[in-house]
Each structure stands twice: as structure tokens, then as C-alpha cells.
Nucleic acid binder design. Sequence first.
DNA 1: TTCACGTTTCAACAACTCTTGATATATTGA
DNA 2: TCAATATATCAAGAGTTGTTGAAACGTGAA
Lengths: 107, 107
Amino acid sequence: MNESQALAAFSALTDPTRLAILRHLVTKGAEGASAGEIGVAVTATPSRAAFHLSTLKQAGLLTSEKVSRNVIYRVDFARMGALVAYLVEDCCAGDARVKSCCAGLFG
Amino acid sequence: MNESQALAAFSALTDPTRLAILRHLVTKGAEGASAGEIGVAVTATPSRAAFHLSTLKQAGLLTSEKVSRNVIYRVDFARMGALVAYLVEDCCAGDARVKSCCAGLFG
DNA sequence: TTCACGTTTCAACAACTCTTGATATATTGA
DNA sequence: TCAATATATCAAGAGTTGTTGAAACGTGAA
């Protein structure tokens, strides 16, 4: 992940609707969810859902696949992990004080 | 860290000048740096540096302390760590696929 | 006091973001 | 074919963000 990818990813995380979409999709895992279902889950109109899904996808955080009438969105888990790594390694230079705050989450 | 704090933090990370400030201050550690020195380091005019420093501070990512004529800024390392934890735990529900991408960073 | 220094604040402006409602495109089933 | 469904796109509007240069504020030194 380079800086402009990270900037796009952080920008994508600055909206509560998009955070809600991300949370919903994380729980769906590899199954993913259709645009319509996501819109209902986060109480967004179709065009609003499409706008935010497009933003998340542009940022590389989601993938999409057309399945008959529907478009299935999924979290790109590797990209999310890479973003966490970028935040720790590049933004914080792997600082031990930062790591110590969240080392407990990792095995 | 709650959602609105996380949103503010992510917003603060969406600008290359602010990322540069953060990187500079991380390397300075507990010593920190003055607003003027930071402005020079990231090639920003005084008012531009003040604007971005204020944004980062409002987001909780920096602390500031007035020392005679200068204002010393420092990274809030605990807050940065909490942001990483929020990203992994709250945004990604602690998903194993995300963790596995960056588990190597932690010991 | 007077001056210079470091920093912040302000107003103006351009650029961007989000929302809304309407419309367009594609796909399926009757 | 026609109608219904799922999604994306568009234009317009309100609100927000980042930049600039000027001005103001506090502090320390002469």
C-alpha cells in the first residue's frame, strides 16, 4: 500500500454510513451482500447506498461482482489488513508505544 | 475510542500534509517539535501548519504545550494505538483475515 | 517601552463532498 | 413482448475543507 492508496482508504472511512456498510460486510465475510440488502441494512436510499459503495470500492476496500440482477459486494480483507499495517508501520514508523496499545489483539 | 472520535481521527489522516506532520512527530517521540519547526519540516506556511496542527489536535491525535514563545506538539501515542485497535476490533469485528495480514508486526 | 519573533485567527475563494430526486441501464419473469 | 426489479448515474443544492495573505495576539529581549 502506498500513500495515495492509504489516503483514499482513510477518506473512505470518514463517513458513518460507510463505516456501517463496512461493519455489515465484515460480518457477511466471503458471502458478501447485495447493494440492495446493504442499503436496507444501513437505512440508505438506493442512490445513497450506490454512492457510498462506489466510494468504498474506489478506495479498494470492497470488491464487487455482478450476479444476475444483483451486485454482490465484499470486504477486501487483505486490503483492510494492509491499511492497518500502513497505519502502524508508515504513519507511526512502527513505534513501540503505538504497538503496545494494541498488541493484545494479535497472537 | 467511540465512533465519532474514530471518524475525526480518520478525517485527520486524509491529508498528505497532516500525514507528513504525523510522521515527523512520531520520529520526535516525547521530545515533540514546535509549530514553526514542523512547518519547515513539511514545507508549509505558518498559517497552513497551524490549520493542520489544529485539525490533528482536535482529532485527539496530538497534544500541545506552550513553552515560552513556542508551542510544542507531540503525538498522542496511546490515541494512535487506540485508533489501530478501533480499526481492527470495531470496523473489522476483529476478523481473523484482517489480523493475519498484520500479525507479523506485533510480538 | 519598543521591537522582533512565534503562533494563531480571520476573510475570501476555489474545490470537494453528501444528499436528494429523477432518470437511465440491465436483467428477470410473466 | 411487456412490466417489474436491481443498480447506477446525473444535476442541483447545501455544507464542508484547504489555501492564501493579512492581521492580531502573546512572549521575550533590548
